[in-house]
Structure formats: C-alpha cells, structure tokens
Write a protein that binds this DNA or RNA. Structure first.
Lengths: 168, 168
DNA sequence: ACCGCATGGTTGCACGAACAACCGCCATGC
DNA sequence: GCATGGCGGTTGTTCGTGCAACCATGCGGT
C-alpha cells in the first residue's frame, strides 16, 4: 500500500497542502516559542511566572482591582482548581489577598495588594517590551487587522468545541 | 479601519492598543482553545493524546518510519526527557519500538510499528478534519499566506529568545 | 593509546495543571 | 418551613513535562 501520492487537493480526505501546513504548524511553533521565551524572561527578571503575571494583569484592569475566582479562572484560561492553587501562591507571596463576597457567601474575590500592584507595574514594562520585540514588531498594521479578524472568526467555534466553559 | 478613536499610538513605553491586544490575546486564546479541542477529540475517538499523535506523524513522514530521539524531540517541541517518557508510553502501547543505531552506539531510533502506522492512519483523518473545520475553514487563501509569512518572520527571533535549542 | 570534552539518552525530582469528589451556599419547588 | 438541584471554591490524586544529574559513547588533541 502506498499512501504516497496525494499532494494537492483540499478535499477533506487529503493531507494539508503546503500553505495550510505552514499556517497551522507555524501557529503551534510560534505560540510555543513565544510563551516559553516570555515566561522565561519574566521569571528571570521579576521572579514571576507568566500565568501569575496574567492574573495580576486581569486584576489590575478590574473594578476595585478585584475579581471573582470564577471569572478570573476563565480569563486566564485555567481550571478552577488550577486557579485556586495559583492564587494560593500569589497570596503567599503577598501579591494579592482573598476577600469574601458580601452579596454571595460562596464567592471569593482575589484582590490586588499594593505589593502586587507594584510588582505588576514593574513586570508589565518588560513583558510588553517582550511582546513587542518578539511579536508585534514583525507585524504591519494591516496584518494586525487580519490576525484580529481571523481570531474573531476562529474563536467561537474553537471555544465551543473545547471541553468545559462552553457558553456559546 | 483606523477609526480615529486611535488610542494614542504607542511607542515602547505604553500599553498595547486595541488592535495589538486583539492580535496578541487572540493568539493565546485561539491556541489554547484549538489545542484543547483537538486533543480532546483525538483522545476521545482514538485514545491518543495530541502529543503522541504528533510523534507518530513525524515518524511516518521520516525515512524508514524511524527517527533519532533527539531529532524527534525538537520536531515535536519537547525536551529530551519529555520525549523519553512519551516514547516509553508509545512503546508500551505497541505503536513504536526503540531500535539501536548501528553507526552511533549512543543513539536510539524510535520506529513506527505496523500497529502505530495503522493507528496513525485512523487518527490522521479525524485530526485533519478537526484542524480544517476549527481553523482552516475560517481562512481565505490570502489570509493563509499572511499567517505563513508572519510566522516565518516571528519564528526565528522567538525560537532564539526561548531557552534551549538556540541554533541561531 | 590516552585524556578531556561534547553529545545522546535515561533517571530522580519537583512543579504546575486537570479531573473528580466534596462542602457550603444560593435559588427554586412544594 | 424544608427538600432539591445548581453553582463557587477547595482538596486529593494523577499525569505530563522540564531541569539537573548521570552514564555511555563518540571525537579530537597530544
């Protein structure tokens, strides 16, 4: 049997053509390289893993610099248990505190501390610089726009097909 | 599209503007959703995690359906130790075998078994279908091209900035 | 031939994350 | 009022991965 053959064609049965492969594998590789590089940089210069940084960012952008655990989890793309542990670490490091919720006794807020705010301010600069030099600097304005629109079209379907959190 | 709302165009100091944020966060979210969805699908329908699938793909494409552990590791973006364990699992499941290297006694090949080849053939169909429906179907030809060229520009720098494997 | 030194692969260990089970609390039903 | 079901958060466990340390082998110098 020779599966050989078949380069061309887009029909569903066949392999990916060259351009498709480039777009798809590129996505995987770029994501892997970028997140690894940015995480390493952030950890090296501020002792702050990328996921922790993301938490701080979302908190800082939120009303009162606090968010419900649940919302935070879906913002940073983590499971509830994953976020619990991550918040444990951040609380231990004094970058945020847990705060009970008045209107719903089940709920808990994670709230940025001044220390967390300061840490974020420092880290933000390096991270943004990294994103710019490693990623954005290679993009023209119209490419930026293309990417954005592509993501907007892809995301709903992908998020919906992914396990959990399908509020589509 | 530069709807004058123009957030202050940013030099390196400031935050990301809206388009930049969309492009960047979109990349993260799309990757997360896609890989999670595809992994779940592959695991559900063939009991094969995505990373294992990737190994089989690269092996099948290689001369003699075998590759050196080292090359395989860098192909699937895994550390050497990570690949060792992954190959352990695949060997245990009978999808590949280790084979010693005649020309270099240190080296080891991972070689696809007929069972592995068959498993891949089955899995490939579902995976490619998934990639198409969740990702490629949303892209026009010129967008495909844009993505490819963007990745090509971004990758060298990112791969170089990432720890390990910097042959730049 | 011998000695460093680099390279390929495996192992011990630690860490981060997911899953499932659980508990306390809200919001309905009767 | 009290039951039921759903939701928010935490805990026990397991799994996959990276790092560092460790052979064993290859390679180049002297």
């Amino acid at each position: 049997m020779s599966t050989t053959t078949t380069v061309p064609t887009h029909a569903d049965g066949g392999d990916l053509d060259e351009a498709e492969l480039r777009a798809w594998r590129g996505l995987l590789r770029v994501h892997a390289s970028l997140s690894k590089a940015l995480d390493a940089q952030l950890d090296r210069e501020h002792g702050l893993p990328l996921t922790s940084y993301e938490v701080l960012v979302y908190l800082a952008d939120a009303e009162g610099e606090k968010m419900r655990m649940c919302d935070l989890a879906s913002s940073v793309l983590l499971s509830r248990s994953g976020l619990t542990r991550l918040v444990d670490r951040l609380e231990r490091d004094g970058l945020l505190v847990r705060e009970s919720c008045a209107s719903d006794a089940r709920g808990a807020f994670a709230k940025l501390t001044p220390a967390g705010h300061a840490k974020l301010a420092a880290a933000r600069a390096t991270h943004l610089a990294g994103v710019r030099t490693l990623f954005l600097s290679h993009l023209g304005a119209e490419e930026l726009e293309v990417l954005g629109s592509v993501w907007d079209r892809v995301l709903p379907g992908a998020a919906c097909a992914a396990p959990d959190a399908c509020d589509c």
